[in-house]
């Protein structure tokens, strides 16, 4: 029931918003999020926006992930065959 992919708010009318889900327009309630803005990316569940994605955090955590993964992969020179 969870829609894992965030959607963008394209319109707001009071407590209702319109989101764009890969080209399809859908109405969502904005009652459960604080101060939503047009252009925000939101996680939508059962017709409600339940969270605004923090873009800066998304960027930062991705960068961190890349750096950490690269470092760990470089350390892995033995191939650890036992784990196949």
């Amino acid at each position: 029931m969870c829609l894992a992919i965030p959607s963008r708010i394209t319109e707001i009318n009071e407590n209702m918003g319109v989101i764009d889900v890969v080209g399809v327009q859908r109405e969502v309630s904005l009652l459960l999020v604080e101060n939503p803005q047009v252009g925000d990316w939101v996680i939508v569940h059962a017709g409600f926006a339940i969270q605004i994605i923090d873009e800066a955090t998304a960027q930062e955590s991705l960068r961190y992930l890349r750096e950490a993964a690269q470092l760990l992969a470089e350390n892995d020179d033995s191939g650890t065959a036992a784990n196949g």
């Binding site: 998304a58 993964a69 992969a73 892995d76």
Partner: peptide, 23 residues
């Protein structure tokens, strides 16, 4: 964020993470 979405699916990054797990 759509770009992020793709990046969170990056096969290269996935492979590195799998390597790290196996290690």
């Amino acid at each position: 964020p759509l770009k992020h979405q793709r990046e969170y699916r990056d096969p290269h990054l996935s492979r590195q993470l799998i390597q790290a797990i196996k290690h």
